[in-house]
Amino acid sequence: MDIELLKTFVEVVKTRHFGRAAENLYVTQSAVSFRIRQLEQSLGVDLFIRQRNNIQLTAPGERLLPHAKMILTGMQRAKVDVALANSTHKQLTLAGTANIWDAFLQFGIHKVVAAMPGISLVAEIKTQQESTRLLLERTLDLAVLFDPPKVDDLIAKSIHDLAIIPVSTNQCSDTSAFFGNQYVYVDWGTAFSLWHAKHFKENSPPYFRTSTGRIALDLIVQCGGSTFIPEALAAQMIDSGILHHITIVPSSSREIFMVYHKDNEQVEQIKMLVNLLHQIR
């Protein structure tokens, strides 16, 4: 199957627009339409429901999407592997969720790179579900996650306890004031959700919810408010007086895990990387 057809298919899915897909691929809109027709003809199915300004995937299109992404990822990795074949470098692919990059990995990835000069590191943002799938497909070497999957083929190592503290743009005298000050709820994973429900079920519901700590932090700085945020991410703003650590409200923490496939051939490099990430503070 032509890789360019799959690239075009994934780009149309991402943009939901043939014209914008054409711009991103540096081809004409007619070329995009022709490629999609070629792909549909080769598979014998319609991949999109074409409506004006509303392009949706058909059921076969939904089924094709994860396979197309896997093929494109595999091809990209193959190109890198071939390019490294004549060098002494090895390649490791590392993925973390957006929250883990913001709150943890960004503070130590430079140390990892400096300490592993013989490794070509590929670092990406992936969701928990996508990381698990790629680990099982053996197209991802390591994933850094809050909630490690309970799968026999995957090994999970605890590498860090992330302190998550209550912060606010106002000085809050009690818990009610904290939650009443435009509280922003961040989804820090299953364990945090259970802890939050247990301790604060009587308080006012949040006026804003997000899955990303960076969004919450930017929002309360711009508009005022309260949220739970990793201490490392809020430290400078607390020191400068932009935010206040509300100590009267309980703090939480999240355990961070490094996950890899038990049959990964680069186990020595993985163990080295686990040790390096364990040193991030």
Results as ranks from 00 to 15, higher is better:
Arg281Ala: 08
Ile246Ser: 02
Lys198Asn: 15
Lys126Ile: 08
Gly225Thr: 12
Ser158Pro: 00
Lys126Ser: 12
Leu94Glu: 14
Met237Phe: 15
Phe228Gly: 03
Leu92Asp: 13
Ile238Lys: 03
Gln29Ala: 13
Lys126Phe: 08
His89Arg: 13
Glu40Ile: 08
Pro206Ile: 00
Asp263Tyr: 07
His67Ile: 14
Thr139His: 06
Lys14Ala: 13
Phe48Tyr: 09
Ser120Ile: 11
Phe179Pro: 00
Glu23Gln: 13
Ile155Met: 08
Thr58Gly: 05
Ile242Val: 14
Leu136Cys: 10
Arg37Trp: 04
Thr169Phe: 05
Leu134Gly: 00
Leu47Phe: 06
Asn53Phe: 08
Gly61Ile: 01
Ala216Leu: 06
Gln41Cys: 10
Ile155Trp: 03
Met75Arg: 09
Asp187Phe: 04
Leu135Lys: 13
Tyr26Glu: 15
Arg138Lys: 14
Thr127Arg: 01
Phe9Arg: 06
Ala78Thr: 11
Leu233Met: 14
Ala232Thr: 12
His160Arg: 01
Val80Lys: 12
Arg281Val: 03
Asp141Ala: 08
Glu11Arg: 14
Arg209Asp: 05
Pro230Met: 09
Ser158Met: 11
Asp81Asn: 11
Ile238Tyr: 05
Lys126Tyr: 15
His261Arg: 08
Gly213Ile: 03
Asn24Met: 11
Arg20Lys: 14
Ala59Gly: 05
Thr97Arg: 04
Leu57Ser: 05
Val151Arg: 06
Leu142Met: 14
Ile3Tyr: 09
Arg50Ile: 15
Ile165Ala: 00
Gln279Tyr: 07
Ser168His: 01
Lys126Glu: 09
Phe34Ser: 13
Val122Pro: 01
Ile49Gln: 12
Ile164Ala: 00
Asp161Met: 02
Phe257Asp: 04
Pro148Glu: 03
Phe48Trp: 04
Ala216Tyr: 04
Val144Gln: 03
Ser168Arg: 02
Pro230His: 05
Ile220Ala: 06
Ser240Asp: 13
Val32Gly: 07
Arg138Ala: 10
Gln29Asn: 12
Ala103Cys: 09
Ser131Gly: 10
Phe228His: 03
Val186Tyr: 01
Ile280Arg: 01
Leu39Met: 05
Leu233Phe: 02
His245Ala: 10
Gln41Tyr: 11
Val113Asn: 13
Gly118Thr: 11
Ile155Phe: 01
Pro117Val: 13
Gln171Trp: 07
